[in-house]
Design a protein around this nucleic acid. Structure first.
Lengths: 270, 270
DNA sequence: GCAAAAGTGTTAACAGTACACCCATGT
DNA sequence: ACATGGGTGTACTGTTAACACTTTTGC
């Protein structure tokens, strides 16, 4: 650095200008298995999302996405990874930045802008996982997701959260969701969830991100059911197999004891 | 709001925690016409980007994307729109958020995180436009863009800026560009430009964002040449016309005096 | 006439859809 | 035996790429 530059920087005071607080909020998706009657039947897979019940105002007792404040020395990605790891105890392998939410009045505490991330947790880890209580001892739960005709429904046992949204374009033609009605969800998190879900579904239709729900090796039917659970659209098995064929590599292992012909196990290729 | 919540908020001090400065930086693209010899020839279109020469340290005299600090009461989108409008004098109709850059050491002035945006300026306005000097009286120029084999070359008259980059995935599998070499570009702006360009090309291949380079009505050949200039890939006219046919609506107007058969003018449909 | 762009038609290759069919297994 | 998922083949349809060809203008 030139001496001139050094001199300039010494006199430069970022603190003289107002600054916002910055957070990372993460929409973490996973799959929830539901056993079906009949010893041969494959369990049904359902898409679910992790939410945390707020222990403090604002939006006390409402449900919110896991997340937290950006700290000095970290990037927004590492912040998202750290917060999620603290919350779930699981290693975070995948993040996607899906938007930034900076409406001035979005948080009653003041000027707080949120980086929204998408993540996917391996189903295997999910079942082993003990969800850690957050720092403020609030409780965390996985909610099954339904999202049709602009109505988002989240269910966890007795708890049912719903939100009605509308897909719009802002003044700069950017795609956004507007909240028409929201019950039980904190802040603008219904918007974030809707956006994350739209992103995830788009990716899953193009055979991306679906591998991250499953263990290292899997059967093609498991992979297909995963795609169907995420997108909400059924596929014909024969066609799915052909389209996926150059994205997977077969192993020499097969499933056993399933009451039907053994299935070859595959892994992601490339 | 409950009285309890109100009480809590009164005692809550966001200022007690460290906060970063937040900026919006915009990669604005447009087309630059180049006349060709022969009275019948269509002028060649070249993709270009607006850069501003920094008048102050850090990176004094280097070239940077237009942008500025987020101010209280605005969203990052309106900040980007405002900064760009101040810089170019033109109305900003389109923005896309393409990423957030928050490496702690990215700006020597301190903790500054940047929201990267993509925008497109109508070619018509570009030719009328007098580029305004920035507040710090630095100069702004349009640079022609080349980006092949991971080498980014920006040219404006005598000035040539080059950067060598590499597309990588970070620890969370997020796509990123790493700067291997960068001459004359400030901060990490080579990364941002590479990411914006990749995004723009992807969109243009799928017939999006290309309309924003042109006036309300245009000929199909102009639209095709626009797509080719952006993606860097040639197309066969007959095939282009078929694929675009349901995204445009024909008008009753035709071009005149071009030295060849008149072309129908179209507008974007839907 | 001629060069340039405007615009239409044709074909072969390819990808996507729907469906029929056989295989292998545990109870 | 049979229900269930594993897996292959095939006919049909729509999309895409490549190329040939005609039209219309200004000089």
């Amino acid at each position: 650095m030139h001496p001139e530059e050094h001199e300039f920087l010494k006199n430069y005071r970022l603190e003289d200008y107002p600054r916002p607080s910055v957070t990372a909020d993460i929409a973490v998706f996973s799959l929830h298995q539901e056993e079906l009657p009949g010893y041969r039947r494959e369990p049904e897979k359902k898409l679910c999302i992790l939410l945390i019940q707020r222990g403090n105002p604002p939006f006390k007792d409402c449900w919110a996405l896991p997340g937290g404040f950006l700290q000095p020395g970290e990037t927004v990605e590492t912040c998202a990874g750290r917060e999620l790891q603290e919350e779930t105890g699981a290693e975070v392998r995948l993040l996607r930045h899906i938007g930034i939410f900076s409406q001035p009045e979005r948080d009653p505490r003041g000027w707080i802008i949120s980086n929204a991330f998408l993540s996917v947790l391996n189903q295997e880890k999910l079942s082993q996982m003990e969800i850690q209580g957050a720092d403020d001892a609030a409780c965390a739960k996985w909610f099954d997701i339904e999202f049709t005709q602009n109505v988002l429904t989240l269910r966890s046992g007795e708890i049912v959260l719903t939100a009605r949204v509308k897909e719009i374009r802002n003044q700069f033609d950017m795609p956004e969701f507007e909240i028409l009605e929201s019950g039980g969800l904190a802040f603008d998190h219904a918007k974030i969830i809707a956006l994350a879900l739209r992103y995830l579904r788009q990716e899953a239709r193009e055979f991306r991100l679906i591998f991250d729900f499953l263990p290292e090796t899997f059967t093609l039917t498991e992979l297909q059911k995963t795609q169907e659970a995420v997108t909400g659209e059924p596929t014909l098995p024969a066609n799915f197999r052909r389209k996926i064929s150059d994205r997977v590599a077969g192993t020499e292992d097969f499933t056993e004891g399933a009451g039907h012909r053994p299935a070859r196990l595959y892994r992601k290729s490339e």
